[in-house]
Simulated scan of single mutants.
Amino acid sequence: MKYALVTGGSRGIGRAVCIQLAKDLEYHLLINYNSNKKAAQETLTMVEEVGGSGQILQFNVTDSKGVKNALDEWHEKNKNAIIEVLVNNAGIKKDGLFMWMPMEDWSSVINTSLNGFYNVTNALIQKLLTNRYGRIINIVSVSGLKGTPGQTNYSAAKSAVIGATKALAQEVAKRKITVNAVAPGFIETDMTEELDEAELKKMIPVNRFGKAEEVAHVVSFLASDKTSYITGEVININGGIYS
C-alpha cells in the first residue's frame, strides 16, 4: 500500500485535498490534525464515502520532536511503508498591521508555515530519497508572492516556503522527487469567512472567491506520476488577481 500525508487535513483546503486524492489516486491517506479530532474524523468519513481509505494522525507541525515521534511511531507500526506524497498544508494567520504586531503573532505564523514545512519534510525526506520517488506539494499563498498589507507575517512565511520549494526541488530532482508549491488567492474556507466577499471580489477578475476543490484538483495533479517533469514551480490559483 502507498501512503500520502496531508498536514492540516481536517478542514478547508486540507480536507478538499484529502477527498480529491482519495478520488484520483490509489493512496491510503494520513490525515494530520493538531487539535480538532472531530473535524479530522469527518474528513476521514468523507474520504471513505468516495471509496478511499485513510486514518487520522495527530501532531502539531510546529513541534519538531512531536512530529518526529508521531512519524517514527507510525513507521514502527507500518514497517517498510513509504509516504510517497506529502502535502504541507498546515497554516494559520494572525493578521494585523506590522507596527502593532506582537512578537507572538509573528512567531506563531512563521512557526506553523515555515518551521512546519521543515519539521515534517525533514522527517520524511531520507525515506523518499531511498525510495527514489516522491511528490512534495507545499500550499503557499498569493500573499507570499505579492505581499498583502495586514499580513506581513503570513506573507513572509509563505514567501519563505516558496524559496525553500525552489531550492529543495533542485536538490532532490535526480531521485525522481518533485517539489512544487500551490498558491491560492481568496478561497472560501474558515480562514476567509470573516472577509468582506462582496467588496473583495470586485478586485478579482473572475469576480468570485475560489473553491477549496479547485485548489485540490491542482494538488492531486501534482501528486500524480504525470508530473515528473514539473518541479520547483509555483502554480497560482487566484482568479487572475495576481500571476
Rank of each mutant, 00 (worst) to 15 (best):
Q41F: 06
R15G: 10
V85T: 09
N34C: 14
S35Q: 15
G51W: 10
V85G: 12
A16R: 14
E42R: 03
L86D: 07
H75K: 13
I31W: 03
K37L: 13
V61N: 08
L21R: 13
C18L: 10
E76T: 07
S64I: 06
V50R: 08
E42Y: 03
I82L: 03
Q58N: 12
N69W: 01
M46N: 14
N34I: 05
T62L: 04
L21Q: 11
W74P: 08
S53P: 01
Q20W: 07
V50Y: 11
F59H: 04
N89V: 02
D24G: 08
D72K: 03
K37P: 09
T43P: 06
S35M: 07
H28M: 06
T45P: 01
Q20D: 15
S53G: 07
G51C: 04
D72A: 01
G54V: 00
K23T: 06
N69R: 03
T43G: 11
E84L: 10
L71D: 00
L44T: 05
G54M: 02
S64Y: 11
N36V: 07
K37I: 07
K65M: 12
K38L: 11
I19T: 13
N34K: 14
K38Y: 06
V85H: 09
E73G: 02
S64W: 12
G54H: 01
V47Q: 10
G54P: 03
D24L: 10
N88A: 09
I19V: 15
I82S: 05
S64H: 13
A40Y: 10
A39I: 09
E48P: 01
V67C: 10
E26T: 11
H75C: 02
K79L: 05
L25C: 12
E42T: 09
A40H: 12
A90V: 05
G52Q: 12
K68H: 09
Q55I: 02
L44V: 04
L30G: 03
G52N: 12
L71I: 07
N80P: 03
N60H: 13
K68E: 14
W74N: 05
T43S: 06
G66N: 08
E26R: 15
I83M: 03
E84A: 10
Q41E: 15
N80Q: 08
D24S: 15
A81K: 07
K65N: 11
N80W: 00
R15S: 11
A70N: 02
A90K: 06
K79E: 11
K77F: 01
N88R: 06
E49W: 02
L29C: 06
L86F: 09
A16G: 14
E48Q: 15
K37M: 11
K79T: 08
N36H: 13
L30H: 00
Y33V: 01
V61W: 05
W74G: 05
G66A: 04
K23E: 15
A81I: 04
D72C: 00
Q58S: 12
Q20K: 15
D63N: 15
A39T: 04
Q55A: 13
G54A: 02
